[in-house]
Design a protein around this nucleic acid. Structure first.
Lengths: 232, 232
DNA sequence: GACATCCTCCATAAATCCATGGAATAGTGT
DNA sequence: ACACTATTCCATGGATTTATGGAGGATGTC
């Protein structure tokens, strides 16, 4: 029923909260939030990235907008959607964490999706220490657009789609730390599998850009550089 | 649709997250979570407190259980539901906060429900300082059951239903700080209106037990005492 | 102005959710 | 074994949500 017209003030308040809850109640909308957490995007780009019909994507985005989770910006004929605030990203991240902690189906679905890459994981702190020591190369395998919107300082960008062709750009001996969108993003897993298959030493960041940003660690916007920084 | 049988592993993972999202997608379920955040309760008690048919309440609780948000304990013929963890309470609190921040309808619905009591609000820190100074009486107006499950140390219990009859138990000069379940709980507002109408000096805690507990402030379980502590 | 692009709004069919009453189950007391 | 209580399970009708195609609005180009 949800939203009884003649309901009392209490029901109206809780139904308003539930409007925001409903925004989290569809896998496709969560996928859209996941994408938006990496930076703003147009409706068309979101639809393609999430594998949705344009009309369907638009409808989901309206639901998110009603919940106040996203805001829009018009640029000519395009409309760019973005998260309405970092608190929304926090809510999204917390939902996933709580679901993984308390819902038995999640770890299973997670493993089925991500698979095993045999890679070690490093924490934020370890990564920062090793970057400071010049010990590793940090590799961002998200689409270039997302790298541009913000990446870990010093990371180089090789989108997962181009990685097989551009593997020669990566150092042969230095260890490579790969990251992508977040804890449940498959790109870094795929990248590690590809890199180790080519004899590179690759490990994975614990999680990804989402958690990095929400931990208030430094984020750098800007274009990818075409050269790999001198390692060691 | 949500839950395509033939969907890929990614869709299954996000649909699993969405299962937890769905648990937050009904005003009635949020009311149940609000109650459970105060302590465990039987199905029957929850149904009555939320104004639900027993069968309907049971169904909502099953939804919450599937999401992993609640756990159960059998005691003889009764089944007690409780939150599965503090992270669930955090998620619930964050959802409300994000909704209030970003959804225009929430502040309006909030004001319509809570009304105005003309009262000053005090923060956690201010309250602790004034309690330490013996400057105020802290009054918990939640049902006795919830007080018993955990209350602010030193608070006295007068459930809102009994307050009109028991107003004489309260000091006439000392300022009274009232609190109840949380930021959107109406009981403290009602209590302040009642107390000021009877010439008492009453103010309100910023929020309530939920936020107090989630801030890791000390919580005391135990029976109400029938005597009001000597004030000042 | 005619036209293309990007997006939102509308209408529709299938799937899902909500509330409810009645049946079934688990545990208690006699 | 029998009655009784608390809760869950099942079936049903009505409302809501999802996906989709087509119409309509807004903006930019020629």
């Amino acid at each position: 029923m949800a939203g009884n017209i003649t309901a009392g003030a209490k029901a109206r308040l809780y139904d308003a909260f539930a409007t925001s809850g409903k925004a989290l109640a569809s896998g496709k909308r969560l996928e859209l939030l996941d994408l938006l957490a990496q930076g703003e995007r147009t409706v068309d780009a979101l639809a393609k990235a999430a594998g949705l019909n344009l009309t369907t994507a638009s409808a989901h985005l309206q639901t998110l907008k009603q919940a106040g989770f996203v805001a829009t910006r018009r640029e000519g004929v395009r409309i760019h959607y973005r998260l309405a605030g970092d608190d929304v990203a926090h809510l999204f991240a917390l939902l996933r964490k709580v679901a993984e902690t308390h819902q038995a189906a999640v770890p299973a679905a997670r493993d089925a999706y991500l698979g095993d890459d045999g890679a070690t994981e490093v924490t934020h702190d370890e990564l920062r220490a090793r970057v400071a020591a010049g010990d590793v190369v940090v590799l961002d395998v998200r689409p270039a657009e997302e790298y541009r919107a913000g990446h870990i300082p010093g990371a180089i960008s090789v989108p997962i789609d181009e990685l097989a062709d551009r593997i020669g750009e990566l150092p042969e001996e230095t260890e490579i730390v790969v990251y992508c969108r977040g804890e449940y993003c498959v790109l870094a897993y795929d990248a590690v599998r590809l890199l180790t298959a080519h004899g590179r030493r690759a490990i994975r960041l614990n999680d990804g850009m989402l958690e990095w940003r929400l931990s208030d660690l430094p984020v750098e916007p800007g274009e990818p550089t075409s050269t790999v920084p001198a390692a060691g």
